[in-house]
Design a protein around this nucleic acid. Structure first.
Length: 462
RNA sequence: GUGGCUAUGGUGUAAUAGUAGCACAGGGGCCUGUGGAGCCCCUAGCAUGGGGGCAGAACCCAUUAGCCACCCCA
């Protein structure tokens, strides 16, 4: 502590001492809890995920939609459900300067539905297939693979009630994980609809009421609010109690049963690996009929973070928001969680394409000359790397080596004098002096030769 | 939101309470004209705040963050 501030009488009223610029700054700015910087080392994984999601989406006829991060808070309370944890405990809500209650979007189905209604997508050829990739926010306790700002990719098909759409969406989700080397199984269930679900809820409530004493405190509360969620409880006692619970699939109305059976048939045709799982109830209120979660196959118990994504049908949501019935189904997957799995599986992302050549220079005049050449090459689409700020050729070649370029072009005193340039093959170390005027065509020729022979980039290592 | 474990240079780690060391990465040099090897040098750290103690990276408390288990979910 170089400066004594306490117990001294300042001569004038002073502001706090500004820290000396050389003094180490205490209280350095820090990442907010649950937030994460995505550093360059992570980008190849992100690129891989982005690419696979986009390719799959486009080839399946989906168009991209991006909705704002900020929405009116009640968009979510109305749709996701007032009683759900997402809304009740985890949503970032604040009042803005005009006094409006704003939320950072915790999920994207409601925003997409809002956009669908707001921009009249109902008049587009149906169904409308949309996909997105963006950040979402939930104020949860962070853990590995769980952040307060997290990314999701997702798909929504609006305006189609056919069960084959549900199956296609499950298929699409599974394909994406497969393409990224993460083998998954779809755990699937049906929640019925407004016709048969209330009925089942009664049966369920009845069942649990007689066994109320065996339930945990949370589930006793759930019994009142949403008995369905008891099925999801991980307390061993609750789990035991719900072992013999009447299953919803046995209490579906005829239409719902037919829908579900057909979804399963289509999944069979598509050879999608799936498991019927009556415990899949989902944490959002808007689901009807088909619901599913994508589980990492490599992990034993299917709870916790093995849950890579989930989806389901929400035939009543649009009706509820816009008073027009639009059947719809969607899926969303978590990017960070997927990335974690890819890392565990030693997924090798495609390397960032390295530059073609490196420009080395010795001396100020050479530096200027290579600067000009740098511009020429770049204009021609040749990717030139350099470290113009370095003086030693050794250091420059080290950089060239690290970058993995094929050729280094070197200009020094000698070359400057006779207006030539050195082409160094970085693999063999063979060097050749060429006329400076001929260097561009020469390089183009060499690069064309080698590039043509290079096989398409391998994405996955063995 | 609850409980447990953890916190040392950029990264990975060491140090009976008594000089914070090593490896990698980074920078420079040996060698202003040649990379992937070697050698030398340099940079950079005890998360934050308090407490007891001659003395703390180590002990105690709080805070913050990470991880794990819950809760929940992506």
């Amino acid at each position: 502590m170089p400066i004594q501030q306490k117990n001294t009488t300042p001569q004038t009223q002073t502001a706090p001492e500004p820290p000396s610029p050389l003094e180490k700054v205490k209280g350095q700015p820090q990442l907010l809890r649950g937030m994460k910087d995505i550093l360059p080392a992570d980008q190849p994984y992100w690129d891989a995920i982005r690419t696979v999601v986009e390719d799959n989406a486009h080839s399946a006829g989906f168009s991209r939609i991006e909705t704002p991060i900020l929405e009116a808070a009640n968009l979510f309370t109305r749709t996701v459900g007032q009683e759900t944890d997402i809304v009740e405990k985890e949503m970032y809500v604040f009042v803005d300067k005009s006094g409006d209650k704003i939320a950072l979007r915790p999920e994207n189905t409601a925003p997409v539905a809002r956009a669908f209604l707001e921009h009249g997508l109902i008049s587009w050829p149906q169904p409308v297939r949309l996909y997105y990739l963006g950040p979402f926010f939930r104020h949860d306790r962070p853990q590995a693979g769980r952040y307060r700002q997290f990314w999701q990719f997702g798909f929504e098909v609006l305006g189609d009630a056919h069960p084959v759409v549900d199956a296609q969406l499950v298929y699409l989700a599974v394909s994406i994980y497969k393409a990224l080397t993460v083998p998954v199984t779809a755990h699937i269930n049906s929640l019925g609809d407004s016709v048969c679900r209330p009925n089942y809820m009664k049966i369920l409530t009845e069942y649990f009421r007689t066994r109320r004493n065996s339930l945990c405190e949370d589930c006793k509360r759930r019994l009142q609010k949403n008995p369905l969620r008891i099925l999801d409880c991980k307390e061993p006692d609750c789990h035991t109690v719900s072992q013999d619970v009447p299953q919803i699939v046995d209490h579906l109305c005829e239409q719902c049963r037919d829908h579900f059976v057909r979804v399963l048939e289509y999944l069979g045709e598509l050879e999608v690996p799936y498991t019927l799982n009556p415990r899949i109830v989902r944490g959002l209120d808007y689901y009807t009929r088909t619901v599913w979660q994508i589980m990492d196959e490599g992990v034993e118990d299917h709870y916790g973070q093995t849950d890579l994504g989930g989806g389901g049908r929400y035939d009543d949501l649009l009706q509820q928001l816009g008073n027009r019935p639009v059947p719809a189904v969607g899926f969303a997957g978590g990017v960070e969680r997927l990335m974690m799995r890819m890392r565990e599986r030693q997924y090798v992302p495609a390397p960032i394409r390295h530059p073609d050549i490196f420009l080395g220079q010795l001396g100020e005049a050479a530096r200027k000359k290579s600067l000009k050449l740098y511009d020429t090459l770049r204009t021609l689409g040749i990717r030139a790397a350099e470290s113009f700020s370095k003086d030693s050729l050794k250091g420059q070649l080290e950089t060239a080596n690290r970058l993995g370029v094929k050729y280094a072009l070197i200009i020094g005193q000698k070359e400057l004098m006779d207006d030539t340039i050195l082409i160094r093959d970085m693999e063999s170390g063979i060097q050749e002096v060429v006329d400076f005027k001929k260097v561009v065509p020469e390089i183009q020729k060499r690069l064309a030769k080698t590039n043509g022979a290079v096989p398409p980039e391998k994405r996955v290592a063995v």
